[in-house]
């Protein structure tokens, strides 16, 4: 799926984090977990809250899988990964309900859905189950940050153009493009931002033409919620 997995010098933490944010951004590059990316990003705040929760679950699950993978029977590794994710999600769910009830009232329903996010289990299978602890931690961090920033970008785009506000504060009079807050508008927003992402990368690639070939976009593969 990526050049990082090929034998060679081990990737640095910085490379791993940037990989999650740009080269293999979960939403704009891998096109994984698009369903929640559409469902919750009607505002910046919703995107931020879910993004932080996904970041926490991704890092914790990646680290857990790296630590216990020797004990997992390879034939049932996927169910065990799911259990690991479910345990972390439930623990975070209970902690949020206990200590941040106001926050939980807003994101509680979405937090439970993280169990089924394709991006998390795919990083466990592709990366954390094969790599040492420290790279797995930074891969999880990079992927979580990539997802968080993508949700923030989509949320800002939709809230700004759809509701004419930013983080709940009205900026424009009225609602410029109310359509964008609807689910269909979510897909359009992601497509527009993805095209923008591609354009930036194409320009950057032209800038360093002749140097090392840039990693190929890895969109496609396993799709899921």
């Amino acid at each position: 799926m990526t050049t990082l997995l090929h034998p060679g010098p081990a990737p640095t933490p910085r490379q791993l984090i940037l990989n999650g944010i740009f080269a293999e951004n979960p939403v704009f590059r891998l096109a994984l977990s698009l369903c929640p990316a559409v469902a919750v990003t009607t505002s910046v705040l919703n995107g931020l809250l879910l993004g932080v929760a996904v970041l926490a679950v991704q890092v914790l699950s990646s680290v857990t899988v790296t630590l216990v993978r020797g004990l997992i029977h390879p034939r049932v590794r996927i169910p065990v990964y799911t259990i690991i994710i479910a345990v972390w999600v439930s623990a975070i769910d209970m902690a949020l309900a206990a200590f941040f009830p106001a926050l939980y009232a807003q994101v509680g329903l979405y937090v439970k859905l993280i169990v089924a996010f394709a991006i998390i289990i795919s990083r466990l299978e592709v990366f954390a189950s094969r790599q040492p602890l420290v790279p797995s931690f930074f891969d999880g961090l990079g992927m979580g940050l990539g997802f968080l920033l993508a949700l923030l970008a989509i949320g800002a785009f939709r809230e700004l153009l759809g509701s004419g506000s930013f983080a709940g504060h009205a900026i424009a009079p009225g609602k410029p493009l109310l359509f964008l807050t609807l689910p269909a508008g979510g897909f359009f927003s992601i497509a527009i931002l993805m095209a923008f992402f591609n354009w930036i990368e194409a320009r950057a690639r032209r800038g360093r033409e002749g140097s090392a070939p840039a990693p190929r976009a890895a969109a496609g593969g396993t799709h899921g919620v």
Binding site: V76, P79, V80, I83, I84, A91, M94, F99
Partner: peptide, 20 residues
Amino acid sequence: SMTVACAAGAAILGVVYVAT
């Protein structure tokens, strides 16, 4: 393997539940 994983998960969740 599955049984151990489930039991460990249940034990962790039990502790978190009691704590929160």
